[in-house]
């Protein structure tokens, strides 16, 4: 697995030290700084816009600091803005997303862990094929399953409900989490499980006492990845829920696409920030693991 990013391993430092003179460094820092500004600009715009009163938005520049700072837009986005005909703000949808994301993350990570354990330490004939089947699921364009899933959720009585969404996210999340754990466990020596077997431990005991305690990093990676994916999901939310059961992304899109009256851009931005804050927080707190999740399937290790 590529945790290379987290290790500060110098590669071409000696070259750069020799060949690069000070002016050369300018060509390195210059573009990097410009890019950094460009990357930060949308976040900056979202924050300052969300803090401005509406008049200032229509009067002043969208990029400048607010002259009067107000949290009205945030208040409105959180508890007053209209989503469809209900003017409840994002709060109930935020709660929906939490009710969806927590069980889905826990279940998919747990199932992925035990699948990865089996596919590496208890290989059976056809284990590789099973892994291949799961792996393709990571790359499934979900449009190809929307109609059958909608019908099936209806048959199961889960249509339009949060448990239904949890089921969908777990079903497709297993593919990713299994990949994470499998790739991690492949690098644990098989002798570890063999030693535990000689010590008398069985299938579950080895998993629980020997394998899981060594897997904290990959558990974090899996949880963060799943949390980000599920929190940010829109397609399943908009396809399988309606009205008050929608997750926050769907509600945000509804707020933003309201076409009646004077457009409240500050509320839009505050709402976007509210929807973004949980994943941004996770990213800030555990960015290292986030990167590992991103690159997990992509770079072999």
């Amino acid at each position: 697995m590529a945790n290379a990013l987290s290790q500060q391993k110098p590669t071409v430092e000696s070259i750069s030290r020799q060949n690069r003179i000070r002016i050369g460094r300018l060509f390195i820092y210059g573009p990097l700084a410009v890019m950094a500004v460009l990357y930060l600009m949308p976040l900056w715009v979202m924050v300052v816009t969300s803090l401005k009163p509406l008049d200032e938005i229509y009067g002043g520049s969208f990029i400048g600091l607010p002259q009067t700072v107000t949290l009205d837009a945030w208040r409105s986005a959180w508890s007053q803005a209209c989503i469809g005909t209900e003017c409840t703000g994002l709060r109930p949808y935020f709660v929906n997303s939490l009710l969806m994301v927590i069980p889905a993350v826990v279940l998919s990570t747990g199932i992925g862990a035990i699948n990865g354990y089996i596919l590496t330490k208890w290989r059976f004939p056809g284990a590789n094929f099973v892994f291949g089947l799961l792996l393709f699921g990571c790359f499934l364009p979900y449009q190809a399953i929307l109609i059958p899933m909608a019908r099936t959720l209806g048959l199961l009585g889960l249509a339009g409900s949060i448990p239904g969404l949890v089921f969908v996210h777990v079903a497709y999340g297993i593919c990713f989490t299994t990949l994470f754990f499998r790739n991690y466990f492949v690098s644990l020596p098989d002798e570890l499980t063999k030693a535990a077997m000689v010590d008398g431990a069985g299938f579950f005991r080895i998993f629980w006492s020997v394998i899981l305690p060594t897997s904290i990093p990959i558990i974090v990676v899996s949880c963060i990845w799943q949390f980000t994916q599920i929190w940010n999901d829109f397609l399943f939310g908009v396809s399988f829920t309606s009205g008050g059961n929608s997750p926050i992304t769907v509600a945000l899109n509804n707020i933003v696409n309201v076409t009646t009256g004077r457009k409240q851009y500050n509320v839009d931005m505050a709402a976007a920030m509210i929807a973004a804050i949980p994943t941004l927080l996770v990213y800030i707190v555990a960015g290292r693991y986030f990167v590992r999740g991103l690159t997990a399937g992509a770079v072999k290790g």
Partner: peptide, 25 residues
């Protein structure tokens, strides 16, 4: 009882826990 090439010590357990693991089971 078996001793492995890579030793296969349980990385999250102390030496004492490693030695006692089999007896505990």
């Amino acid at each position: 009882a078996m001793v492995f090439q890579s030793y296969a010590l349980y990385p999250t357990m102390t030496v004492r826990q490693n030695i006692e693991f089999g007896m505990k089971i």
